[in-house]
Nucleic acid binder design. Structure first.
Lengths: 139, 139
DNA sequence: TCTTGACTTCAAGTTGACTTGAAGTTGCAT
DNA sequence: ATGCAACTTCAAGTCAACTTGAAGTCAAGA
């Protein structure tokens, strides 16, 4: 398959495929003249990359995961760690969504008078402080 | 308060405060010599910005929200819309987290043999296709 | 008065994941 | 044989949200 076909199948622009190859995420199996040729497995690999992206892995992390042998060597610990990460983010987003919903429905004149909004705000304020101190403290 | 004090209280670097001011997110109430002076309300404003960021608003969106009068004019529709957005993301992340957890625990030789993993993969593949077609189709 | 540390401006750099443009090459249908 | 759409490389541009650096100013304490 040439790059155009892979592009058609996956919907990814050819430029992206070249970029992924440069980054070591996919490999072309040869050339016809100048033009790259890809084995059909590249499609599955690209799906894997899309999956990884959706899960929050960076391209670099993924390159590390299956760079070496051509074999996909995903370590379960990394998956579990990422699951934890997602879980934390889910909790954060859920709290935020609930707060927003409440604030949107709330009838206080100004948001600053709504207790729920103020609670959210305090949480965010803590966030600012927390981050500042953690950065100083641990780094 | 001068910029150093605001920085100390919030933990935000002075460079960030100047940047926010340039972007119209905060205002300084005057100068002492060259130096910016801030009213105490700036702290609450910065908390509001942090909250907005955590909720996924961009700085530009927020500048639009309270740019005009100095008054914070947050529209409830925007909040509700953002809540919807968060909800969608939460659902996506939840599915992803469950999939990752399963894949991490799964005993199949290779992840590609695990049905749960393959299901995730198919979902991601649909993602690629879907995006490609929607972009062509609707834009 | 002098020093100094905290401020100032403005331009440029950073990160990640790509995209865009220019200039050149080439497989393949006619 | 020829034309051209589809490829190629390489460098530079994009976006958001900042950060960094250089060079300059200045308020306040000793």
């Amino acid at each position: 398959m040439d790059i155009g076909e892979v592009s058609r199948i996956t919907g990814l622009p050819a430029s992206t495929l070249r970029y992924y190859e440069e980054k070591g995420l996919i490999v072309s199996t040869g050339r016809r003249g100048l033009r790259r040729l890809y084995a059909p497995q590249v499609i599955e690999r690209l799906a894997l990359i899309a999956l990884g992206q959706a899960a929050g892995f960076s391209l670099e992390e993924m390159a590390g995961m299956f760079g070496a042998g051509g074999q996909v060597r995903i370590d379960r610990q990394a998956l579990a760690a990422k699951a934890e990460e997602l879980d934390a983010k889910i909790r954060e987003l859920t709290a935020m969504r609930n707060g927003l919903r409440h604030a949107a429905a709330c009838r206080a004149e100004h948001h600053l008078e709504c207790p729920t909004f103020r609670r959210l705000l305090r949480a965010a304020t803590k966030g600012i402080f927390g981050r500042a101190e953690r950065v100083r403290g641990t780094k």
